[in-house]
Amino acid sequence: MKILIVDDFSTMRRIIKNLLRDLGFTNTDEADDGNSALPMLKSGKYDFLVTDWNMPGMSGFDLLKAVRADENLKTLPVLMVTAEAKRDQIVAAAQAGVNGYVVKPFTAAVLKEKIEKIFERIQ
């Protein structure tokens, strides 16, 4: 299971990386916005994408749309982990095809639950 973590803050990437490791996912890479993440996703054979929304350069929302528009990536499970908490944003993310939405600040238990739920639905 290869996972890409996208967040502009290295501390948040590190927290998510640690939590994923505790859940048994040790094969993770990091990117700091959509512009650096998209080429990695296209060439890297990732199984799962965890992304923030608000980032300089390409936002997580635009990254989600780019992933869904790409023939090879459109089925990639995407979990959004973000401070964006407006109802219309969550609706927009759902309509754009997000698989899970975790609002910051979050707990390890919530992240675990959402990831497990996404994999359950895929299998």
């Binding site: 997580g60 929302f61 964006e84 908490a85 407006k86 219309d88 969550i90 939405y101 609002v103």
Partner: peptide, 29 residues
């Protein structure tokens, strides 16, 4: 536009257009 990131919302509990936590997100979804 809802597509633009707006960052953390302050006083979320007092606003109807903002979720107040993960339970709210789950209910909405």
């Amino acid at each position: 536009s809802p597509e633009l990131g707006q960052g953390p919302q302050i006083n979320a509990a007092e606003r109807a257009d903002v979720v107040s936590g993960q339970d709210d997100v789950d209910d909405l979804l």
